[in-house]
Nucleic acid binder design. Structure first.
Lengths: 331, 331
DNA sequence: TTGTATGCGTTATCAG
DNA sequence: CTGATAACGCATACAA
């Protein structure tokens, strides 16, 4: 008996196909006795629902599309883990798209993922192309944006203020008595730009901003780039005695470069990272960083899309951030 | 005109629906003139194929299922990136499952992913449950196993010898003159066990194996665990003057712990990691490691599943490994 | 609460 | 090379 279908199960249970369908999807629309019979028949036949047929008939899939900027960035794998966790309890699956920090690619991916309509969509940030917005509207699918805040999200948005978070990290360096603080940034996407703005704001408030203080690139962010950018920074801004880094990768690279150059951290030079990606807490010296609730963001986004009526949630949800002070800024 | 279908396109092109279908899927079954007309009509209408309908009718999807042991392990995100790259050119998508190093969970995931049948399946290692094997056989879907080697793969297998790779790393430590070499291992899955076997083999060949030399745990592998395990190792094996680590995370943790304890690397203590995850090349001192061709493995697995007849490929493909010597073992 | 009829958009099959 | 017709397995709308 190859691949039992609803009809096969129905025959075994002595009911109609639609009753089986209902017993599985909306158990309380079916009487207790029939529900029991149906479940029994399902077990007996080894029935597995055919997702394509279901999607075709209902014009909806049971999967949530998650389009992230980078699959090799641990920030987003943490988010994905959170999403997966939330979706699992609702019997939903996750369809991942890797947009490579490119809104056009995001659009292309969505175009291919939107037919038939998925159960929901999770997107990073608020920089969707106009075409993307139109598509999303046409399909009428619930959307959750993440990793940022906005007063007018497509659907809902859950994240934190990148500007405020970066300001807090920078302010911490100021409070520790560093006088010439620089900024390291790679992969300068919109949220990175916001962090740069937060950095500037903190220094301007402290009256310490110097135009030579930022070293950035649009190349991908990694440890090596952190070392490179630190070199660039100290050569263009020799008085520099601390850095706020856009990302923990860069902070580690900066730390290692300091080791190589014999610069003492935190005594001569302070380092603050961003995200709290784990390793910053273990290296020597350990690195101060701004922790972001990545997994929690993913989980909440997944949760919102799991429930039928997401009306219980605010349209903008700020999950905040927190400063994790460690050795690299404690002198 | 909401959601144009094949029929809509067919009307515009003045042909039948099935011709449109063919023009898109098997262009050379259709005359040049009609093919042109069809493509024109597709553009005009903005047609996007409905995957559910296609899957239902053909009983095959256009997506490749990839079940990996951990989504937060960069080893596997590198693999995924490779797979995605290969599939993109063949208009295939990737469906990811996160099995958490649990064959039973792998089985559950596959069960839900196998109806309707995907275009192909990629699995890590060779430790599938008997039920998984049976399911795979019933569905008759092409399977590629990765990250290991085996003479009797389910379908094809592309990877490298974990045993040989670990032996090479350990032998390198021997050759550098270290006399009391230990092993650090977390998340002791089957491939980790193979590496442990390779470690032992190298030391036995050198006549240096000591039963106190291994510190392992089944807890997840991360930098912190590397530090913990190093502590355990030196307390149970005080003469220890080098470690081969099952993973770069552990190697970094060991390195940082050496810093904290004032143990000089590489002078007093040698460290060799596994995988070459990038950061090992940037830290201070940089860490020797055994490089594994993760992305290439993913890419090749994706490629094999992209072509109709994968007969051009051997059933077992060994992509090898290579030792990357750095400062942590160079004295 | 349960069942009947019908259609979802595509592809397989078989004719022409 | 092209087309007509019939599935594919399930869910929606309505009826009972």
């Amino acid at each position: 008996m190859p691949k039992p279908t609803l009809v096969d199960v129905a025959k075994v249970a002595g009911v109609s196909a639609i009753t089986v369908s209902r017993a599985l999807r909306s158990p309380d629309m079916v009487s207790d006795s029939l529900r029991e019979k149906v479940h029994e028949a399902v077990r007996e036949t080894g029935y597995m629902p055919n997702k394509s047929a279901s999607a075709l008939a209902s014009n909806r899939t049971r999967s949530v599309v998650v389009v992230i900027p980078s699959i090799s960035n641990n920030v987003f794998t943490d988010v994905m883990a959170g999403v997966a966790e939330a979706l699992a309890t609702a019997q939903l699956t996750m369809q991942i798209g890797n947009a490579g920090y490119d809104p056009e690619e995001e659009e292309r991916l969505l175009r291919s993922f939107l037919n038939p309509a998925p159960h929901g969509v999770i997107l990073a940030g608020v920089e969707q192309t106009p075409e993307t917005l139109k598509m999303l509207e046409n399909v009428d699918v619930p959307v959750v944006q993440i990793m940022d805040l906005d007063d007018n999200p497509i659907g809902k948005i859950v994240g934190f203020s990148n500007t405020d978070a970066a300001e807090a990290g920078t302010r911490h360096l100021v409070e520790q008595g560093y006088k010439h603080i620089g900024f390291l940034g790679a992969q300068m996407d919109p949220r990175s730009q916001q962090r740069l703005a937060g950095f500037k704001r903190a220094l301007e408030k402290a009256g310490q901003f110097d135009p030579r203080s930022t070293a950035t690139t649009n190349l991908p962010s990694d440890v090596q780039m952190g070392a490179t950018l630190l070199g660039k920074l100290v050569s263009q801004y020799p008085e520099c005695d601390a850095v706020f880094c856009n990302n923990d990768d860069l902070a580690l690279g900066a730390l290692f470069e300091c080791h190589r150059r014999g610069i003492r951290v935190p005594l001569d030079f302070g380092i603050c990272g961003f995200n709290n990606l784990g390793i910053t807490g273990e290296c020597f010296p350990s690195v101060t960083t701004v922790e972001t609730p990545r997994k929690e963001i993913g989980r909440l986004a997944g949760q919102i899309l799991s429930v039928d009526a997401s009306e219980g949630y605010d349209k903008t949800i700020d999950l905040g951030y927190s400063l994790v002070q460690r050795e690299s800024t404690t002198r």
